[in-house]
Design a protein around this nucleic acid. Structure first.
Length: 184
DNA sequence: TTTCTGATTGTTGAG
DNA sequence: CTCAACAATCAGAAA
C-alpha cells in the first residue's frame, strides 16, 4: 500500500519504460476506452497483485515490446459465462440499482453461474458457440486484411474488401435443436 | 482528461 | 499439455 498501485498494467509499464508507446495509446480512445483488462485470472496462485505483471515487467525491463495492438483485431468471443452475465447484469442491476461495483456483480454472477445446471447453461453455451463461429469468421477477415495490406493508411476509396468468398450468412438463425441435456 | 481498477469464469492463443 | 492473458461492465480513483 505504501506504493499505492504497484500493479501496473502493460500500458503502465510502457510509460515507465518508454513514453513512446503511451503516445500510441492516446489515439485509441476512439476504439476502446477500457484498455485495461482485468488481471485477476486464475486464482490458483491467488496472486491478484502479480503474475502477469511480474512476467511483463521482466520482459519490459530487458526490452520494450509492443503488443501490436490493432484496432481491427477482433476481440475474443464471449464465453457462455459472459453470455449469461450479460443478462445477469441486468437482473442484478434491477435488484441492486445502487450497486456500482462491477466486482459485486461479478461475484454474484459467478456464484449464480455455478448454481446453474448443465441444462440451464445449455442455451448460454449454444449462444457462446455461435459467437465463436462468428469470431472465427471475423478473425478470418482480419487475417486477410493483414495479408492484403496492413500498412494502408487513409482509404482512398471505399473498398468493399472484407467480403470473402465463402459462406455469406447462410446459417439458419434459429438452430434450436432439442436440447437433450446429458447431465451426469 | 484519460486511463486504469475491480471480480467473475471460460476460452483462446502461445509456449 | 499448461499457463497466461483477455473477453464485458461502470463508476470511481489516480496521474
Amino acid at each position: 500500500m505504501f506504493c499505492g498501485r504497484l500493479r501496473m498494467s502493460k500500458a503502465y509499464l510502457f510509460v515507465l519504460c518508454g513514453i513512446t508507446v503511451l503516445i500510441l495509446s492516446n489515439p485509441r480512445r476512439g476504439f476502446t476506452m477500457k484498455g485495461g483488462r482485468s488481471k485477476s485470472e486464475t486464482k490458483k496462485a491467488d496472486s491478484k497483485l502479480s503474475v502477469k505483471k511480474g512476467a511483463a515487467a521482466a520482459s519490459k525491463s530487458t526490452k520494450k515490446e509492443k503488443p501490436a495492438k490493432d484496432p481491427n483485431k477482433p476481440k475474443r468471443p464471449a464465453s457462455a459465462f459472459f453470455v449469461f452475465m450479460e443478462e445477469f447484469r441486468k437482473t442484478y442491476k434491477e435488484k441492486h440499482p445502487n450497486n456500482k461495483s462491477v466486482a459485486a456483480v461479478g461475484k454474484a454472477g459467478g456464484d449464480k453461474w455455478k448454481s446453474l445446471s448443465a441444462a440451464e447453461k445449455a442455451p448460454y453455451v449454444a449462444k457462446a458457440e455461435k459467437r465463436k463461429a462468428d469470431y472465427e469468421k471475423t478473425l478470418r477477415a482480419y487475417n486477410k486484411k493483414l495479408a492484403a495490406g496492413p500498412a494502408e493508411e487513409e482509404s482512398e476509396k471505399s473498398n468493399s474488401e472484407v467480403n470473402d468468398d465463402e459462406d455469406e450468412e447462410g446459417s439458419g438463425e434459429d438452430d434450436d435443436e432439442d436440447d437433450d441435456e446429458d447431465d451426469e
